[in-house]
Computed example of a mutant assay.
Amino acid sequence: MATLPESANYGINGAETVEYPTKTYLVKDGRICGMADGLEAMRQVIDIMLRTERYQYQIYTSNFGVEFQGLIGKVPEYVMSMVKRRVTEVLMTDKRVKAAENFIFRQANETLECEFDVRTVYGTVRTEVAL
C-alpha cells in the first residue's frame, strides 16, 4: 500500500526541463551598450570568469572564477600545467561550455601568456589569459 497518493509523484515524473535564453547585457569599455545572446554573450561570460579571482568577491559563488594568484612566482612548467587545469575546471562549470582545448603558452619576460579555444554550444571562442 502506497503512503502517498498517485498525484504526489506528478511533480517528479512529469517535470520538463526548460531552457531559458542566454540574453544578457553587453558591456563594452565599462558601459552597457545593448543586449547580447549566443556566442557574443558566451564571449563575455568567459572573459568575466577568467578575470575574476575565485573566492575574492562575495557576490559570486565559490564555483565562479579562477585561482591564478597562487601561481605567481612559481616555476613556469608547473604554472603551465596548473593554468590548463584551472581554466578547464572553471569553464566546465557552465553547462554551455563543451571543452577548453588547443592551449598555446608563450613566455614574454616575466609574463606567461596562454591562448586557447573554448568550444561552446554556440560555437568556438578563441581567448587568452596572462599571468
Rank of each mutant, 00 (worst) to 15 (best):
V18Q: 11
I12Q: 12
E19Q: 15
L50A: 01
T24Y: 10
A99E: 12
E128P: 07
D94K: 06
T61V: 02
C114K: 11
F64K: 00
K95P: 06
R96N: 12
F68C: 00
E53V: 03
R51M: 10
G34V: 05
I104G: 10
N109E: 14
Q58L: 09
F68V: 00
M82L: 05
G123R: 14
G34S: 04
I32H: 05
E6G: 06
F68Y: 07
P76Q: 02
F105A: 04
R54E: 04
Y60S: 00
C114F: 11
Y78D: 04
Y55K: 08
V27F: 08
E53N: 03
F68P: 01
E67R: 11
P5R: 15
A8C: 07
R106G: 08
E19W: 15
M80I: 02
F68Q: 00
A15K: 13
Y20V: 09
E77Y: 03
I72G: 01
K74S: 06
N13T: 10
D47W: 13
V83S: 02
S81P: 02
E89T: 03
A108E: 14
G11V: 09
C33Q: 15
G30Q: 07
F64I: 00
I48Q: 15
P5W: 12
V90G: 00
L131T: 09
N63L: 08
R54K: 14
L91D: 03
M49L: 12
R119W: 09
G70N: 05
D47E: 15
A130D: 13
T93S: 10
V45K: 15
D94Y: 11
T111P: 01
E19S: 14
N102Q: 11
A41C: 04
Y122F: 15
V79I: 05
I72W: 01
Y20G: 06
Y57S: 07
M92D: 05
D117V: 05
